[in-house]
Design a protein around this nucleic acid. Structure first.
Length: 276
DNA sequence: CCACAACCCTGAGGGC
DNA sequence: TGCCCTCAGGGTTGTG
């Protein structure tokens, strides 16, 4: 379940093997992996181009080409890596390669995605495919004042709001739970009822949780892999996510799991009381 | 503005 | 061993 830290880790890992390389051929297994434009146009546009740089916006991987951008969204089970052959693990060869890009140096950029939720795009501006992205939480512009402003007048459950990419870009289920726990805020609290100190705390814990995830090179719950094929370590540092019934690291009470906005939500009922 | 459901898809894991 | 069932979920879209 790649979120901002996982996508950022992929971006960083791809720079060395991919920047400066030229794409000489593209082959796909099924047209649905190419989201926009049409497969024929996508291949025509991408082939022959050199990768200038690689960056991230929200959970999108953006490969800047000579002209235009090759964008990739991993969704749940996507992997993106450069290798001579599809990856192999204990389970065998990567059976889920959906599209691959042959590079001039003989290496190949593979996009693999078991559940086919992810996809690739050829665009000139991220707004073409994601017009309403919220602020990047790790950039300087994301201040407590900005968060306060965005919470104003919102009656939604704070956890549900945090999952909206139009609210804050890049936060997903894992890091939403982790930052709410660290800020001692109940996931069902209404957004516009958060107090000043709570907002300040949440601002800090969102950044801390994401930075921790990046530092540990992402969380490999089941599918996520770094571009070199190894697992991240972020999952070993979760306080609440995937810890239902286990003792809270702060007070020892069992972690509770509920559903919020159709997502599994983990929290400590004592450290995160319903009322501030 | 908000909640909820459906949808895209397939592997993992539990029950029996 | 294997079949069946449910669950996991990022993001979009539609409904009320």
């Amino acid at each position: 379940m790649p979120e901002l830290p996982e996508v950022e880790t992929v971006v960083r890992g791809l720079r060395r093997p991919l920047v400066g390389q030229q794409i000489v051929a593209v082959e796909y297994e099924k047209s649905s992996v190419i989201r926009t434009p049409s497969p024929d146009e996508f291949i025509a546009r991408v082939t022959g181009q050199r990768v200038r740089s690689i960056n991230r916006r929200a959970k999108y991987i953006l490969c800047q080409l000579d002209d235009g951008i090759l964008a990739v969204h991993l969704k749940m089970t996507g992997r993106l890596y450069v290798a001579a052959q599809p990856a192999t693990e204990e389970s065998g060869v990567d059976r889920w390669v959906r599209i691959h890009f042959s590079l001039a140096n003989g290496q190949t950029l593979y996009f693999s995605d078991a559940r086919r939720f992810g996809g690739v795009f050829y665009i000139h501006d991220i707004a073409e495919i994601a017009p309403n992205l919220g602020p990047e939480p790790l950039e300087d512009g994301f201040t407590p004042a900005v968060l306060t402003e965005r919470l104003k007048g919102r009656n939604r459950q704070i956890k549900a709001l945090m999952l909206e990419q139009s609210f804050i870009a890049g936060v997903g289920n894992i890091y939403a739970d982790e930052s709410l726990f660290a800020a001692k805020i109940h996931p069902l609290r209404r957004a516009d009822t958060l107090t000043r100190p709570e907002i300040k705390r949440l601002h800090g814990t969102i950044r801390a949780a994401l930075n921790s995830g990046i530092q540990h090179e992402g969380a490999s719950i089941n599918w996520y892999r770094k571009p070199d094929g190894t697992t991240g370590q972020s999952q070993d540092h979760f306080a609440v996510y995937d810890r239902e019934g286990e003792p809270c690291l702060r007070c020892g009470a069992p972690i509770v799991k509920i559903r919020v906005a159709q997502r599994g939500t983990h929290f400590c009922p004592y450290c995160q009381p319903e009322r501030a």
